[in-house]
Design a protein around this nucleic acid. Structure first.
Lengths: 345, 345
DNA sequence: TCGCATATCCAAAGCGCTTTGGGGTGAGTC
DNA sequence: GACTCACCCCAAAGCGCTTTGGATATGCGA
């Protein structure tokens, strides 16, 4: 059923039918009702490709996921973000287009999305230090919102981010207040903007007390369970083991917990752990007393907000760059406790 | 830069330029090279919407994700599947369109995808018992591949699935061989096709020995860490606790492990655990001796295969339904051991 | 020299929709 | 009764591409 068929069926022109369906005022209310009823009855749906071609709007938002040998961005955190964003898109009538591209083809991919016209806007994921994408997209002239920040970008741009520095500052303060001094930082890849900010918060808390963290207790890698486990295991077996861990995601935190338990220690008594908690739907840290003491900030919510922001940007071009900084809650769980005076090891 | 501009620039017709770019034979080799060079130099990319409109092909594959109050399909397993599929799509020049739709709007959503013409084919996720989608899509006449099977579908259809029954049969056999009799099954939602098959394998192993599983040891829910933990905790505290667990995914298995450890027991010695392992990139179970004894089958690989199959279906219409059954490996890890004669509790 | 393949290229007609720039028609005004 | 002016509605021109159905050249044998 195409527009033409429908219009012939109704003995109306395509123009009138189109206007009736799209809510233009210059069509009599009675006619509109007649058109809407017929469209409904025959299950008419406008062909998006044709509509897009005519309007110049794709009614779709793109997420380009760079995949490198080292960094795999299709992770549970990304999944939750996308789930949040997707809700908003479908509510507002947009499609979500996900492009998995080898890192080296990335610039290419962005430019193509522009000229191919398959999306109206983009979400930029996992900004790195010196990330070229902000510059590139501004140049290309396509609306975009960054999930996170690209600290060193010269141009203004829109973003939704969590206050990483503050969250990690607070978490570190809590551990320091509990008496811990040898605190390990299990962080994400160190060229990631969020990882840099988290480390900054961590170091800030130390230096505010005239202390300094031990660099040998800081590790940065892709945030897998295995990374958390192996690092914790190695550090705990080392000559001067940490008494506490600050971890960048609940996934490596699960690995840290495993390492602690393998060594016959008890998390929260022998070793304290605070993790950042993205409040992932499948890995909830939400018991009456949560397992992990955590800085919690829902990444799904961040996805919703970023999508909302982007659609506004797309629909009101020129509306200046927007920024949204989300604060994490500090949740007290079972994984933290005061430094034991005599560590029984 | 549009086709028209490029053709004027080259003093050629749009026809010739289009043909040169798309590899048609009726254009001189010299001309083709000239066209390609110019296209490259000016960064010409055909507008996909226009091309789609003209060819009738969308060059995109859709994944419709139903979201209900209870069931949240954007989970880590889905993420890995999509990552695999996405690789294939981009390699073969397709886009991936993800639609998050409330469950009740699902039929609507599928029909729309058809008439809106935004995709050439679909992947059907998480088939349930009595799933109407196979029938619906056949009727609509859009190519699709099911990830899993819809056991009770009357029509033939294409699918990629893991041999759930066999995998769980083998896992259960292993536990029975180790002497376990009180084995708990921590399964996915029971209306899911895969969950039914897994349960069948589980029961089959028992009945092959003239035994029967204890129904009070079987639980079915959304496969979260919390579900695994809470169920294991409750069962282990019950009057006749299990001595082993068979778990449907590594995420609840992590919860089971947590419950075991909270009770001061040791997994692999006091309590045995076998889990199905989708080989998720962020939750790898791949140490020298893996933590969990597991039936392993990469869901990312399944994504690749399903995508491959679907694109073939799309590109060679009428090529009959295809089927692919993947076998899981049985991996021996640290989480299983013989039944202790005197359970020290 | 002519005729006829063969090799190259082109003009124009869509694909299904939106939107511009009018036209009728009837009610209201003087 | 002539004239506005809303109010509804329409024909036709794109949007940028592919593809059909020729047109023009070129080369070759007869």
């Amino acid at each position: 059923m195409k527009l033409k068929d429908l219009s012939e069926l109704l003995h109306l022109s395509q123009t009138t039918v189109s206007r009736a369906l799209n809510g233009y005022p210059e069509v009599a209310e009675a006619t509109r009702r007649r058109v809407l009823a017929a469209a409904e009855a025959h299950g008419y749906r406008p062909n998006m490709r044709a509509r897009s071609l005519a309007t110049g709007r794709a009614m779709a938002i793109g997420h380009v996921i760079p995949v490198t040998a080292r960094h795999e961005m299709v992770n549970p955190v990304f999944a939750d973000f996308v789930a949040g964003a997707g809700e908003v898109y479908s509510r507002r009538g947009y499609d979500m287009l996900i492009s998995i591209v080898p890192d080296e083809d990335q610039e290419q991919a962005y430019r193509e999305l522009r000229t191919k016209g398959s999306v109206d806007g983009l979400i930029v994921h996992a900004p790195k230090l010196g990330d070229p994408r902000v510059h590139l997209l501004s140049e290309i002239g396509m609306p975009f919102v960054v999930h996170g920040r690209a600290s060193d970008a010269a141009l203004p741009y829109s973003w939704v981010d969590m206050n990483n520095t503050h969250a990690f500052r607070r978490a570190t303060d809590l551990l320091l207040d509990l008496g811990h001094r040898r605190i390990a930082l299990i962080n994400g890849l160190e060229n990631m903007d969020f990882a840099i900010r988290r480390r900054a918060g961590f170091e800030e808390a130390f230096s505010a007390r005239g202390l300094a963290p031990d660099p040998s207790l800081m590790a940065s890698e892709e945030m897998t369970e295995g990374f958390g486990h192996d690092t914790a295991r190695a550090l705990l077996a080392g000559p001067a083991p940490p008494t506490a861990f600050l971890v960048s995601s609940i996934i490596p935190a699960i690995g840290v917990r495993r390492a602690i338990e393998e060594l016959g220690l008890r998390m929260g008594r022998d070793i304290s752990v605070i993790t950042h908690d993205d409040d992932l739907s499948y890995l909830k840290n939400r018991a009456e007393v949560p397992v992990f003491t955590a800085t919690r900030s829902s990444v799904r919510d961040a996805g919703r907000r970023a999508a909302e922001m982007l659609l506004n940007l797309v629909e009101t071009p020129g509306s200046g760059p927007h920024e949204e900084l989300l604060e994490a809650e500090l949740i007290l769980g079972q994984s933290t406790g005061p430094l034991l005076q005599s560590v029984s090891r």
